[in-house]
Design a protein around this nucleic acid. Structure first.
Length: 552
DNA sequence: CCCATTCGACTCTTGCCAGT
DNA sequence: ACTGGCAAGAGTCGAATGGG
């Protein structure tokens, strides 16, 4: 390996040879002097200690305050409960007897009881509350165990309730997170189908657990609530298939999604790998599942959000993994390692498009590559024109069919070429395989193409091709948002017309791929034919009846 | 005490290479 | 030719340090 300048690696690489004592000593000495291993100075240690004690004291004070407030709330509640009917009091006592059997932490228990009591205003809801309480207790136990294992303070959990997945956040005041879930459950929750899965560390979500539909008190409620917008699932897939031979233990799992805790995907030769996670760390069939999940994930990058935030990435990884498991009928837990492999594909997805577009930039936009000063100047001018750099509110023109007259929005020859090369190369390409995600071409897909073209143009910003300019998320997310905004504005002008235009774009790209055209659903009989045949059928039936009578 | 600097760990993106 | 994996290199972040 060539000598690396990477700071983190330099140390381990050098210390690894070990045949040069002076070098090793120097490194050790350097370790003592600097870096995370170095000890803080006396003064700094004192400062740190002071800070820690201050925080501790603050925390203690807050806890005391919290206890006080809770006691006050309890008093208030008991005084109110006295005025209620004996029946509801009975129910309350039933639930409190339940609480005693499940209660490892009394503070959280009070919150839970409070949450539960909210549901006791009527007979039916009182019974419901008891059931909820059992579920809460079970959930809390699960959360407690997960926290103990992972040693993380907060988690996002997926709960399988009545066979439906519900995602929610557990925080310090975790009953706050679960109460909306309970508010949506108007029938008793049973313990049997309940399973909790650790999805990963908590990610800050601005609007915690907002139900997507208003609650209906009578009908069975939709309790699926996801904290992030999800893609328009399901993606279209072919018949479920089996990827390699599953291990002998798995056939028992196959067929139905198991309701209990899922197993971790098995590592290759049963050995826990080290280093960067990769699909090859796992057994062959898991390897293929991961690769397929990665492909689906890349489709989401192209069609749902080209620069998803962490929460979205997390949700997508869960979705594609679940989908892959369902499709292969082999069910494994989505471990953090697998999730990392899947979500690590986003820059690859964008980079692939960039690599398809880049070779066409100079020819399409007329950049001169001879390296002369005159060419540089012309290129710079061209670049500024295409990006509309001189305007106070730049509106890039590179995507117009005719950039000079600014006509033909999103119809530049490069747009269709990018679509064809990247997603519609042949009949097995993503654009054909996941047609529902691409037909019509989505605003997001167009925005990604626009952004990628802009990146390729930016490489010509100083007049010559700059290969060191990078397509980073940080630099181009804002550009992507701008393009998406412009495209949405364009679509909003005439929803139907723009949809037709985008549909035509898809049809052209599909046709170019050589894939069979989408067949329209077989038309049924026309109304007039139906009327004629109905009369004919009635006549035939009447004839049958008269025949039967004659025979009798 | 504040702020600039330094440094190591870590993340992200890219280019290359091996396998298919 | 394409795909997946690896490693290099650039960038970022947070903690420690030291000078004013």
């Amino acid at each position: 390996m060539p000598a690396t300048t990477r700071k983190g690696k330099a140390k381990s690489a050098s210390s690894g040879d070990g045949d040069n004592p002076s070098e090793t000593e120097a490194i050790e000495a350097a370790d003592d002097r600097s870096g995370r291993a170095r000890k803080p100075s006396k003064k700094q240690a004192e400062i740190n200690e002071d800070k820690q004690t201050a925080v501790k004291r603050k925390l203690e004070a807050m806890q005391k305050e919290y206890k006080k407030l809770k006691q006050q709330a309890k008093k208030l509640k008991t005084s109110k409960a006295g005025s209620k009917t004996s029946e509801s009091a009975g129910n309350a006592s039933e639930s409190s007897s339940e609480s005693s059997s499940f209660s490892p932490e009394s503070e959280e228990e009070d919150e839970t009881v409070a949450t539960t009591r909210k549901h006791q205003s009527a007979d039916a809801t009182a019974r419901l509350a008891v059931c909820h309480f059992r579920v809460i207790a079970r959930l809390r136990l699960a959360v407690h165990r997960l926290r103990a294992t992972a040693r993380l303070p907060v988690h996002r959990l997926r709960v399988n309730v009545h066979g439906r997945a519900v995602s929610f956040v557990t925080s310090a005041s975790w009953s706050f997170a679960i109460s909306p879930l309970l508010a949506y459950c108007t029938r008793p929750l049973t313990l049997a189908p309940l399973a909790t899965t650790l999805l990963g560390p908590f990610i800050i979500i601005p609007t915690p657990f907002i139900p997507t539909a208003p609650p209906s008190p009578l009908a069975l409620p939709p309790i699926i609530t996801i904290t992030r917008p999800l893609p328009s699932w399901p993606l279209i897939f072919e018949q479920p298939d089996h990827l390699g031979a599953p291990p002998p233990a798995l056939p028992a799992q196959a067929g139905q999604p198991p309701t209990g805790d899922l197993k971790d995907p098995p590592f290759l030769h049963g050995r826990t790998p080290t280093g960067k996670p990769k699909a090859g760390d796992y057994e062959a069939h898991v390897n293929k599942m991961i690769v397929r999940a990665c492909h689906q994930y890349e489709v989401l990058i192209a069609t749902e959000d080209a620069f998803p935030d962490l929460g979205t990435q997390d949700g997508w990884a869960t979705q594609v993994w679940t989908d892959t498991c369902k499709r292969t009928q082999v069910f494994y837990k989505l471990t953090e390692r697998v999730e990392k492999i899947i979500t690590g594909r986003d820059s690859h997805a964008r980079g692939g498009l960039r690599d398809k577009i880049r070779p066409h930039i100079a020819a399409t936009y007329g950049f001169v590559t001879d390296g002369s000063e005159r060419a540089k100047g012309a290129n710079r001018e061209r670049y500024r024109f295409l990006l509309d750099c001189d305007a106070s509110k730049p509106e890039p023109v590179f995507h117009y069919k005719d950039v000079e007259s600014r006509s033909g929005f999103a119809h530049n020859v490069l747009i269709l070429r990018a679509l064809q090369d990247h997603w519609f190369a042949d009949g097995t390409s993503p654009g054909i395989k996941y047609a529902s995600q691409f037909s019509p071409i989505r605003e997001v897909t167009l925005a990604l193409v626009f952004t990628t073209i802009q990146f390729c143009l930016d490489q010509w910003a100083d007049g010559t091709f700059n290969k060191h300019h990078m397509y980073t998320e940080k630099a181009y997310k804002s550009q992507y948002d701008m393009h998406l905004r412009h495209i949405r504005d364009w679509c909003a002008m005439d929803v139907n017309a723009s949809r037709t235009v985008r549909q035509r774009l898809y049809d052209r790209a599909r046709r170019a791929s050589g894939a069979a055209p989408v067949t329209a659903p077989c038309p049924g009989l026309s109304d007039s034919s139906k009327e004629r045949l109905r009369a004919e059928l009635a006549a035939q039936a009447a004839a049958c009846d008269s025949d039967a009578e004659e025979n009798a």
